[in-house]
Amino acid sequence: MAGTFTTRTLTMATGATETMHDLTHACSAFLREAAHGRNGLLNVFTPHPTSGLAIIETGAGSDDDLLAALRGILPADGRWQDRHGSPGHGGGHVLPALVPPHATLPVVNGELELGTAQSVVLVNTGRDSPERQVRLSFLG
């Protein structure tokens, strides 16, 4: 049987502050509809210059630690060459070099293969747009 490709775009409200949104349940729901028990790959992509995707433990403090680390590395101040948008916005444009805008994950028997306590999260440092898109694509 030839491989199949299925894709969907999610839109989520991210508000006007730096945030992390757990996408794990949305990824699993998409795979229930798209994978039909097959093996393959799930690609997750966000097309925004101030957002990235991380595989990280959530709820135990690691998510807050990641945001704090990013604030330390990419402070919202006037040091950035890129000065469009709100003050300090330029640092957010460096985010995808540290937290990439994509992740490709294994799908086994139609289910996302993550390690213990791992979650798929959207990391958003942009404060100028209250909404973000994430594209989920299954190839199997």
Rank of each mutant, 00 (worst) to 15 (best):
G85T: 07
D65F: 05
Q81M: 08
D77E: 06
R83L: 05
A68D: 13
N124Q: 12
G78N: 15
H89T: 10
L98A: 09
A69K: 01
E111F: 03
R135Q: 13
L105G: 08
A69N: 01
R79S: 03
G92N: 10
P130S: 14
L139K: 03
G110T: 13
P87M: 02
L114Y: 12
G110Y: 11
D77Y: 01
A76R: 15
D63E: 15
R79H: 11
Q133M: 08
N124K: 05
G61M: 09
G72S: 15
E131S: 14
H93T: 04
E131W: 00
N124G: 07
L139C: 05
L70D: 08
G72Q: 13
S86A: 14
E131I: 00
G91T: 01
A117L: 15
S129V: 12
V108T: 15
V121I: 15
T125Y: 00
G88W: 02
P96E: 03
R135E: 08
R127D: 14
S137D: 04
L105W: 10
Q81N: 06
H84Q: 14
R71M: 06
D82E: 11
D65P: 07
D63R: 09
V107M: 03
R83C: 01
I73G: 02
R127W: 00
L114S: 13
L74S: 10
P75C: 09
V121M: 10
A103L: 11
L74P: 03
T104Q: 00
G78H: 12
P96Q: 01
P101T: 14
L95P: 00
S62T: 14
T116Q: 13
D64Q: 13
V123M: 05
P96I: 04
V123N: 05
R132A: 06
N109E: 15
G78R: 13
D77T: 07
G61H: 09
A117K: 11
S86F: 06
D65I: 12
L67H: 09
L105T: 10
P100A: 14
R135W: 00
L112G: 09
G85C: 05
P100S: 12
L105K: 08
L122H: 07
A117Y: 15
Q118W: 06
V107F: 03
D128G: 11
V94K: 02
A117C: 13
H84M: 12
S62N: 06
A97L: 00
G110W: 09
G115R: 06
T104A: 10
E113I: 01
G61K: 09
A69V: 13
R79W: 05
L114K: 11
P96N: 03
V121G: 02
Q81W: 03
V123A: 04
D63N: 10
D65M: 11
V121L: 09
S119P: 05
H93V: 04
N109H: 15
H84C: 04
V94S: 01
H93G: 03
A97W: 02
A60I: 03
I73W: 06
S119Q: 14
G88P: 04
V120T: 01
D65V: 07
H89F: 03
R132H: 02
G78V: 05
Q81L: 10
D65Q: 11
Q133H: 12
V121K: 07
D63T: 08
A69D: 10
P100V: 06
H102A: 12
P100Y: 00
V94M: 11
L105R: 13
S129Q: 12
L67F: 02
D63Y: 10
L122P: 04
A68M: 13
L105D: 11
L95G: 06
G92Y: 02
G78S: 15
R132G: 06
L114R: 13
A103Q: 14
L95S: 00
